[in-house]
Design a protein around this nucleic acid. Structure first.
Lengths: 326, 326
DNA sequence: ATGAAAGCGCTAACAT
DNA sequence: ATGTTAGCGCTTTCAT
């Protein structure tokens, strides 16, 4: 692969001059420019960004750590991140941490070794210490990682309120919420709290079903079926849309009609759900805005590592009414 | 951020020795090792992989170019790629090319500039020339890119055959196939050919509806509705599962019963579909095997740029029978 | 068992 | 307007 020196030789100028042409910097005569450009074309030259970055410049690489990308929510988010980063001249190293803390730890080390300019993290396997030690600009999505790491999230509390209001408005009396395992410190818990508080104001209570994030859909389906059979519920709030799909599936098999017998509301409102399951009432997270916010903050921190940022940035959610609530 | 020299000083040895410890190479006394390790811990040292790679070593970076990741098929594929690459000590730079050739071209340049060790490409915006000029190991998924770039794909032709057989077996008489726009040279066309040939053997014909990849689901849905109303079909083959979901949606709205009035079969069989739409009969692509194959070939080429590989690697598909065919 | 020194490809003073 | 040179952090001969 051609180097800057090769170009210099071919064009009959010094390496510096070539560097100047590449970076469009200092004063160059038109002649030299043309010569150099010609040489670059001829050898299909690409400046080695490793060498460049070694000289203390930015790598323009961002590490993105998420639980996984086969889930449509994170799929859409990653797509959005990639798109926005690209427009700003950054590339992304994708890290699917799953629920494996060892892997996440290894990735963190790798990202440091690769001298990424910053990190967007939306996973939650690790303790605080590891993220503190990284010493790189980090922005978190929907998770508390450590002091001084800003969290961007949608308004989970209000989402919970909206869900409760929608179910109340549709005349439900016996409420059920289905969540993932609730981690301490996770902003996601606010969905539950918002739901609970709103019901409490009307003196209503509800049952809670926790399904571990790591359970397979089959297992989740089974637990849902069990719940559906045992309890007399008529208003269900799932804190993610995929679980809501499982409820629809199980209800259909049991001959339970939605929304006649049960009203159902999900959470996330990805483009995927809007396109392929428009029947589902859900709370939409503003993924594009979340990503814009995260990237904005991250780039600020990259420009100035010391810049002060808020602890929390909360973006508004929206109720999308489908046919699963009346 | 600490450098190798910092460690050397702190440990009271030469940089060379530190390098030896890091790479576990040459002969070291236990004492020195311990000292050096201690120094590394103390400064939370991570070797700068940029500097390492500059010295001619591999970057352990792989570029992955795909149309996008919000589609569950590519989502699952990316997840699989990431997972397998990680286990072999590689990272991945994710490039969503969409249907934007300028972006794909820019990414190709970036990947060269970043000196990735190799590329996995599954997009199809670009002409042959650009991929030829890259001069990096490349493996393609399901697309013809250029001479000497191996293509890994599932057995599209056989998939088409299976689909036809399933519809025939379920007693359909009037066939419809719904595909994306058919590009020349795309292995995907074979799905159509396999379907056609199998029907032809039984003296059956079929209608073709082409939906551009770039159309929104709403538009696709509209065209499907139109088709459903106008034609008298009772056996539909969609060359991807998402389109099949759209057919289910439209049929439901029109009061057409599946499988009573129409039999339906999709293509891809992602884990997502298997979990959330088990009712859909579909042809499953062996994503994990495809990825294993691609990575295997890519690493071979990375080890030896000249190594000879086949032009095509075709992996078997499987019929998954749901309730949309009887 | 350890160290000195050159060099990977580039950029940035500092000349001229 | 262009060139010389040193150095980014590491690996790798070649010495000792």
């Amino acid at each position: 692969m051609a180097t800057l020196d090769d170009i210099a030789k071919l064009a009959g100028v010094s390496p510096t001059t070539v560097s100047r042409v590449i970076n469009n910097y200092g004063s160059l005569s038109e002649k030299t420019k043309t010569k150099v450009f010609a040489a670059m074309k001829e050898l299909n030259y690409q400046p080695n960004s490793l060498a460049r970055s070694l000289k203390g410049k930015k790598t323009h690489l961002i590490g993105v750590i998420l639980p996984g990308v086969s889930n449509p929510f994170f799929g859409q988010m990653v797509q959005e991140i990639e798109d926005q980063l690209f427009k700003k001249g950054f590339r992304m190293i994708l890290c699917n941490a799953g629920s494996d803390s060892e892997k996440e730890r290894a990735y963190l080390r790798m990202l440091m070794a690769n001298r990424v300019d910053g990190i967007i993290a939306g996973s939650h396997n690790l303790g605080i210490e590891e993220y503190q030690k990284v010493g790189l600009p980090i922005i978190s999505f929907d998770r508390y990682l450590s002091e001084n790491i800003p969290i961007v999230s949608s308004d989970n509390y209000h989402g919970g309120q909206l869900a409760a209001q929608a179910l109340l408005a549709s005349g439900s009396e016996h409420f059920q919420i289905i969540t993932g395992a609730n981690r301490p410190n996770s902003p996601t818990n606010a969905r539950l709290t918002g739901f609970k508080d709103t019901l409490a104001k009307r003196d209503r209570t509800f049952d809670l079903l926790e399904l571990r994030f790591s359970s397979t859909p089959n297992i989740k389906g089974l637990k849902i079926k069990e719940m559906l059979l045992k309890k007399n519920v008529d208003g269900i709030f799932c804190t993610d849309d995929l679980t809501a799909l499982l409820v629809i599936q199980q209800a259909r098999e049991l001959g339970i009609k939605i929304p006649e017998n049960i009203r159902l509301i999900g959470y996330d409102g990805t483009r995927f759900i809007q396109n392929y399951h428009p029947e589902l009432t859900t709370i939409m997270q503003p993924i594009a805005d979340i990503v814009t916010m995260m990237i904005d903050l991250l780039l600020k921190r990259i420009d100035d590592h010391e810049c002060q940022l808020e602890d929390n940035y909360v973006l508004p959610v929206k109720l999308i009414t489908g046919e699963t609530t009346i």
